[in-house]
C-alpha cells in the first residue's frame, strides 16, 4: 500500500509542478489553491461553464495557483451559499452563480444570506431561454402552441430544473398571462429535462440553448419562442415573446462572485483574471456557439445589477405566492 501512496504522491506532484506557471500580475496573488464552488450539480449548464473557465485558466496559464472546483448543488444552491458565506479564507473562495443566487435567499430567509455582501467579481454572460416542443407534436408556432395547451388543460406537462427556479418562473408567467394550466414537473437538471422532451416523456420545456442544442440540431426539438428582448442570432426565425405582445423577458446570470469578506486587493485580482478569461478565444467561441448574451460586468455595476435583479425576483416570487 505504501508503494501505491508513494506512486500516487509522485504522480500528483508531477502534475502540480507542470502547472506551476507563474504570472507577473497585480500586487495580490493567491498563495494556495483557489476554492472554486459551483452552485449546481455535475454535468449541467453551470457546471460545464465553470469547468470551461477552469480549463481556460489552466491552458492559458492565467493564474499562479489552480482553481479547485467543487459542486455544491444541494437545496437549489443553499448548500453553496452557506459554504461561501462561512468560508474560512474568503480571499481564496470564489463561486459560479445562477439565478438561484437571488431566489434561494429570498425563499429561505433563515439561511441568513445577504447577496450584497458577496464580492462582485465578474458577470461572464447571460444565458437565454426558449420554449421547446417535440417535432412529433406537429406544433410549429407559438399561437398554435397556445391553442393546443389551452385545450389540453392540466394534461400539458412542462419539465424544468427545480422548484421556484428560473424554469418555474417562466412557466408561472405563461400560465398567468395566457390563461393556461400547464403542469410543472421539477427535475434535477436541464439535461434530463431536454432528454425527456426528446423522448416524448413530457410535452415541453424552457431549456437554455446549450441544453437543447443537440436535439435541436438533430431535428427532434423545435423552438417556438424566445424569452429575450431581441431575436437570437442563432435562431433568427424564432420570434420573441415580446413580439407576441407580452412584455416579458428573462435571463440567467452566469457570474463569478467572491466569498463575503474578500479583500479589495483579492477582488481586483479575480476581476482581472476573469476579464482575461472573458476575452479569451475559448470563452467567446463558447458564448456564440451556445447562444449566450450579456457583456462583461464587474464591481459596483455588478452589485447594482444584482440589487435590481433581486428586486425583480422578489416581485415575481411574491406574485406567484412562493414567498409572502
Amino acid at each position: 500500500m505504501r508503494k501505491i501512496l508513494t506512486l500516487l504522491a509522485l504522480g500528483l506532484s508531477m502534475l502540480t509542478t507542470s502547472f506551476a506557471i507563474t504570472t507577473n500580475a497585480a500586487a495580490w496573488e493567491p498563495n494556495k489553491p483557489i476554492d472554486f464552488i459551483i452552485m449546481a450539480g455535475k454535468g449541467g449548464g453551470a457546471d460545464k461553464m465553470a469547468r470551461l473557465m477552469q480549463g481556460i485558466v489552466e491552458s492559458e496559464g492565467l493564474a499562479n495557483r489552480p482553481l479547485v472546483p467543487t459542486n455544491k448543488s444541494g437545496g437549489s444552491g443553499a448548500e453553496a451559499l452557506l459554504a461561501a458565506n462561512s468560508a474560512t479564507d474568503p480571499d481564496h473562495t470564489i463561486m459560479v452563480t445562477l439565478n438561484s443566487f437571488y431566489t434561494t435567499p429570498l425563499r429561505q430567509p433563515g439561511l441568513g444570506i445577504d447577496i450584497l455582501t458577496f464580492a462582485p467579481v465578474a458577470r461572464m454572460a447571460e444565458d437565454t431561454f426558449l420554449l421547446w416542443v417535440h417535432k412529433d407534436s406537429g406544433i410549429t408556432s407559438f399561437e398554435q402552441w397556445l391553442k393546443v395547451v389551452k385545450k389540453e388543460g392540466k394534461n400539458w406537462v412542462m419539465g424544468g430544473t427545480g422548484s421556484n427556479s428560473e424554469d418555474n418562473i417562466i412557466t408561472d408567467f405563461l400560465n398567468e398571462n395566457f390563461d393556461l394550466k400547464i403542469k410543472y414537473i421539477p427535475y434535477k437538471g436541464g439535461g434530463a429535462v431536454a432528454k425527456d422532451v426528446a423522448g416524448k416523456q413530457i410535452n415541453s420545456s424552457v431549456n437554455n440553448p446549450s441544453e437543447a442544442l443537440g436535439f435541436y440540431k438533430s431535428g427532434d426539438m423545435v423552438p417556438l419562442v424566445a424569452f429575450t428582448d431581441e431575436r437570437l442570432p442563432m435562431f433568427p426565425e424564432v420570434p420573441t415573446l415580446k413580439e407576441k405582445g407580452a412584455n416579458f423577458s428573462y435571463f440567467m446570470q452566469r457570474s463569478v462572485v467572491g466569498a463575503p469578506g474578500m479583500s479589495a486587493d483579492a477582488q481586483a485580482y479575480y476581476t482581472n483574471l476573469f476579464e482575461k478569461v472573458y476575452a479569451s478565444a475559448g470563452w467567446q467561441e463558447y458564448k456564440s456557439k451556445k447562444s449566450l448574451m450579456g457583456d462583461l460586468m464587474s464591481g459596483n455595476e455588478l452589485s447594482a445589477y444584482w440589487e435590481k435583479q433581486r428586486g425583480n425576483h422578489e416581485s415575481i416570487l411574491r406574485a406567484s405566492g412562493a414567498i409572502k
Binding site: 454535468g43 457546471d47 460545464k48 469547468r51 432528454k195 442544442l213 443537440g214
Partner: peptide
Amino acid sequence: IPGSPTTAVLLAGMVIWGLDPGPL
C-alpha cells in the same frame, strides 16, 4: 447527457476540448 458522475466530468472535458456531444 451523462449517465454517471464520472461521465459528467468527461462531458465537461469534451466541451472544453471543443466538441459538441449530442445526437449528431
